[in-house]
């Protein structure tokens, strides 16, 4: 079952500024769903629509198979969120910030100490949140999102402002929450490299369109499909004909012969064949697209 599902989600800020053009998103139960896209792709707009911060114009949004609008309060009871920059009261301490929400969620008071411990802010005492570093504010926002012991976490670029060590700690925390507490996590980022070690599923959005959606292995398989051999010879025309006689499906692109990846032995045999036919081979390269390249190809 999908924990979060949207169909044909369309949103326009004005006639000229269409932010989303029919987003179909499926976040399976227990998944860590990485929502990727460059700045301005429509990630935050989608997440704000999911949380009811923007008025829905077209399409449907459902959580746990139930429409969000008719079940807003019950749904939000199970959701923790962090949208863009931290939302905290600068004149209050970390504990007071959490107490503000503890009153609304009516969760046990000891939950405040638990979540502060979880994000490493137990020792902040009477220090006002306004005096926290950006990283500390981000951690406090995560603590706020975790306070009601949610079934779903919706996090919009939660690693913004964190140092490399903080990013690793955040990643480990989210993994732990997902594995131990079975929390479904929807996390957005504009950097694939930042979340590829964390996510189980990926959605790639660009200019308001979903360019790819699937599991991480599916994305990796796409990577393998696009990896290839590139060969430079003294006579590409004849070389192409010889290679294709071997049923290898090669083609010429930018003065190079491009063909699917081959085992080492096959590459040696092909090279010998070309040399035997008096064709000079000056380059054989394996081109492996990493996930980042695929991501960039999808959003070109």
């Amino acid at each position: 079952m999908n924990t979060i599902e949207t169909t044909n989600l369309v949103h326009a800020f004005s006639e000229k500024e269409i932010a989303l053009q029919g987003i179909n998103m499926q976040v399976p139960e227990g998944a860590i769903y990485g929502f990727l896209g460059p700045n301005g792709a429509g990630k935050t707009t989608t997440l704000r629509l999911l949380l009811g911060l923007l008025k829905k114009q077209q399409g449907t949004i459902s959580f746990f198979g139930k429409p969000f609008e008719q079940n807003r309060i019950a749904t939000l009871q199970k959701v923790g969120s962090l949208i863009e920059s931290p939302s905290i009261y600068a004149h209050l301490t970390a504990t007071e910030n959490l107490a503000v929400l503890q009153k609304i969620y009516q969760c046990p008071k000891q939950r405040i100490a638990e979540v502060l411990e979880l994000v490493g802010l137990s020792g902040t005492g009477k220090k006002k949140a306004g005096k926290f570093s950006l990283g500390m504010k981000q951690r406090l926002s995560i603590a706020i999102a975790m306070l009601n012991d949610p079934s779903i976490l919706i996090l919009d670029e939660p690693t913004n402002g964190l140092d490399p060590n903080g990013i690793i700690e955040m990643r480990e925390l989210l993994k732990r929450l997902n594995q131990e507490k079975k929390i479904t996590i929807l996390i957005s980022s504009h950097l694939l490299s930042e979340i590829e070690k964390l996510v189980t599923h990926v959605g790639i959005i660009h200019k308001g369109n979903m360019m790819f959606q699937g599991t991480l292995p599916e994305l990796i398989s796409k990577q393998q499909q696009t990896s290839h051999l590139s060969i430079g010879t003294s006579d590409n025309g004849r070389a192409l004909s010889i290679i294709n006689d071997q049923q290898l499906n090669a083609k010429i692109t930018a003065e190079k012969i491009i063909l699917p990846l081959l085992p080492k032995e096959k590459i040696v045999q092909m090279n010998e064949l070309l040399v035997k036919n008096n064709i000079g081979v000056f380059e054989i390269t394996t081109v492996k697209n990493d996930l980042e390249t695929i991501f960039m190809d999808l959003i070109k």
């Binding site: 704000r48 949380l51 009811g52 911060l53 309060i73 019950a74 749904t75 939000l76 009871q77 959701v79 969120s81 949208i83 863009e84 920059s85 931290p86 939302s87 905290i88 009261y89 600068a90 929400l101 609304i104 969620y105 706020i144």
Partner: peptide, 18 residues
């Protein structure tokens, strides 16, 4: 203005209350 100043309207509006 506390909510605007601290950028907390979005947090408040995602709490389970009408």
């Amino acid at each position: 203005n506390l909510e605007f100043k601290n950028n907390t309207w979005k947090q408040l509006h995602t709490t389970p209350q009408s």
